[in-house]
């Protein structure tokens, strides 16, 4: 028997398009988006069991209760984690490695909530970003009622 290093490949697939998931979160998040658009408010849901506040809203809590109370949270936030595209500011990284417009992505916790939202930081040099820094949502002039409204934060002067 002649041993082959490359044998026949049989092609197949997983027709994932036939899967249709169910998510309460879609309806909850839509509500939050509507409140952003109509009232320029950040609405989160609060767990009756442990008091954790979820933003964006979440249909279940890790304490096994269903967060069903709507509460308004603030548009100021604290940075808990971050990264960059384009590392123009860092040691040993040449300019030619930076491609596209440099962006700072950050995980922030809005005041009044207990959860993280991912956003982009503007108006700050990357080397100055730090965990624990205070930021504020930069509301777009026209609020679209979607995730893009939450896409930009700026440092908060306190």
């Amino acid at each position: 028997m002649e041993y082959k290093n490359e044998t026949i490949a049989i092609e197949g697939s997983w027709n994932l398009a036939s899967w249709e998931w169910k998510f309460e979160s879609i309806a909850l998040i839509r509500k939050t988006f509507e409140a952003m658009k109509n009232e320029r408010k950040l609405m989160a849901n609060k767990c009756p069991g442990c008091g954790r506040v979820y933003f964006l809203p979440k249909p279940y809590c890790l304490c096994l209760s269903i967060p069903d109370e709507w509460v308004e949270i603030k548009d100021t936030a604290t940075v808990t984690t971050y990264t960059f595209t384009g590392a123009w500011a860092y040691e040993g990284i040449a300019d030619d490695e930076v491609s596209g417009t440099p962006q700072i992505f950050a995980g922030v916790v809005f005041d009044g909530s207990d959860t993280k939202t991912v956003t982009m930081l503007e108006g700050i040099e990357p080397e100055k970003v730090h965990v624990g820094m205070r930021v504020k949502l930069k509301w777009p002039e026209e609020v679209a009622g979607g995730l893009t409204d939450l896409a930009h934060c700026v440092p908060l002067e306190e």
Binding site: A9, W14, F23
Partner: peptide, 20 residues
């Protein structure tokens, strides 16, 4: 409850091995 799907079909290529 809202539903969601995504039009994707991950493809595989199974090598059959020397016996097959």
């Amino acid at each position: 409850v809202p539903r969601a799907s995504i039009p994707l079909n991950p493809v595989f290529n199974w090598s059959v091995g020397n016996w097959m």
